[in-house]
Structure formats: C-alpha cells, structure tokens
Amino acid sequence: MSMEPGSDLGLTRLDHVPVRACGMVGFLTAPDDEVVRLKAMGVCVGRRIEVIQQGDPLIIRAFGSRIGVSIRVAKHVFLDLCGHAYSLEHTLASDHAARTGVLPPRPGQD
C-alpha cells in the first residue's frame, strides 16, 4: 500500500487539514505555474496558513487574506500542523522541496 507523500514526515495534505487548524507550509508539489500563483498569494514554504472552510474549493487564510483554493491545487500543498515539533528531517525536507519542488528520498531509499 503506497503512503501518501509527506505522511512519513508528519505533514498533512491541505485538503485533509481540519477547519480552524493552522500549519506551516512544508512543501508544494504543484506544477510550476501553480506554485508561482500560490507563492504570490502567500502560500509559500515556511509560511503559516489557516484553514477556514473545507470542501472543493476550500478557503484558507494566508498573509492576511482569505483565499479560495481548488482541491486540485490543495492536494499539492502539505502542512506541518501547528503544535507539531519541527524535526530535523522536516526542515531538511522543506529546504529540499523549496529548492527542487520534489520530496527528498527517505533514508534507505534509492
């Protein structure tokens, strides 16, 4: 059974985040143009966002604004929910994802 990307790093996909919960953006796996749009709106690695309403589309609060996000985009955004301790592994994953847009290999993987 395949694991969901990010679950081994303790990250939660944006469309699975409960309403009113917040989190730091861990990484984005969306296509380039979507990533640019998201970043320009404040959905950027290391930034804190809050989920206002779930559904398709869902509503988040980012950088002082309410933003409607299609679930097609939301499933490419992974959050480290508020209250979780940052792990070294997650920090490395964030940096790697920010630079390359892809998840780092897990230890022991090729």
Partner: peptide, 11 residues
Amino acid sequence: GETQPLVMELP
C-alpha cells in the same frame, strides 16, 4: 486541457 484551478482572493 483542464481549466486553471481556482486560486483566488476572497476580498
């Protein structure tokens, strides 16, 4: 192709 997915500010 598909529509551009929604990413829109709700002012």
